[in-house]
Amino acid sequence: MTENTQIRTLDSGALKALAHPLRVRIFDLLASQGPQTSSSLAALVGETSGSTSYHLRALAAHDLIREVEGRGTARERWWERPKGRIDMPGPDEAMSPANRAAAQIVTSEFFRLRQESLMAHLNRPDSDVPEEWRDVALTMTTHLDMTAAQVMELREELEALVDSAIERFRGQTGPDVRRVSLRADIFDLPKANSRRHSPEEGS
């Protein structure tokens, strides 16, 4: 597995450092928009550069982000999110109350931002999208009947496909290149209450 496809599971310190809605957003923006300064991030999130600088330092202290080598000055530092995947553990009963609360903040904000970006894409008028990009996006939901073993097999196939795409396209540049979001979800649905009223029970 290469650096691009390695997975880092956040420890309790990193999880707590990330457990702030603005820090999750900054972390997400560095992934989706590429390297930024505290000033450029401030413009994107509607905060002061002093505020974003403080949160950037907190994220960097736990190696969640890092300075871009050879770019910027002492007064204007550039920050980036390291390559590789981040495993953000959800709230777990085995966690301490503090870690569980931190995990809940991180996962809730992460998926809120994810849904927000999807809705922004779905509601964007065609006039805001270059013509060659208007028919390439895909949003698809289907429901299947599968065993846990079959889901795991499909999951591994999807992960292999995504890893292949990462190897092929990571760091690509050019006039026709745009940043895209690649999403994959697969999970079991809770069973509905299958109990039916008998005629004797009434409605």
Score class of each variant (00 low, 15 high):
Arg77Thr: 05
Asp92Met: 15
Leu144Ser: 06
Val24Met: 04
Arg183Asn: 00
Ser39Lys: 09
Val136Ala: 12
Lys83Arg: 08
Tyr54Gly: 11
Trp133Phe: 05
Arg57His: 14
Glu69Ile: 10
Glu159Ile: 13
Arg183Gln: 01
Ala160Lys: 14
Phe27Glu: 04
Phe187His: 00
Arg196Ser: 08
Asp163Gly: 01
Ser117His: 08
Ser164Ala: 15
Ser39Ile: 08
Pro130Asp: 05
Met119Gln: 06
Thr73His: 02
Leu161Tyr: 14
Pro82Leu: 03
Asp185Tyr: 05
Leu189Lys: 09
Ser32Ala: 11
Asp185Thr: 04
Leu59Cys: 06
Leu29Glu: 11
Thr139Phe: 06
Ala148Gly: 11
Leu64Phe: 06
Arg170Asp: 15
Leu118Asn: 02
Arg100Tyr: 01
Leu64Lys: 03
Thr2Trp: 13
Ile65Ser: 05
Leu10Val: 09
Thr141Arg: 05
Leu18Thr: 05
Leu158Arg: 12
Thr173Glu: 12
Ser108Met: 10
Ala17Tyr: 01
Ala98Met: 13
Arg124Met: 10
His143Gly: 03
Leu10Tyr: 09
Ala149Asp: 09
Asp135Ser: 14
Ser53Cys: 05
Asp145His: 09
Ser38Trp: 06
Pro91Arg: 04
Pro35Ser: 05
Ile7Trp: 06
Gly171Ser: 07
Gln36Arg: 07
Tyr54Ile: 13
Asp126Gln: 11
Ile186Ala: 10
Pro97Ala: 12
Glu47Phe: 11
Ser198His: 13
Ile166Leu: 14
Asp11Trp: 02
Arg66Ile: 11
Leu30Met: 04
His121Ala: 08
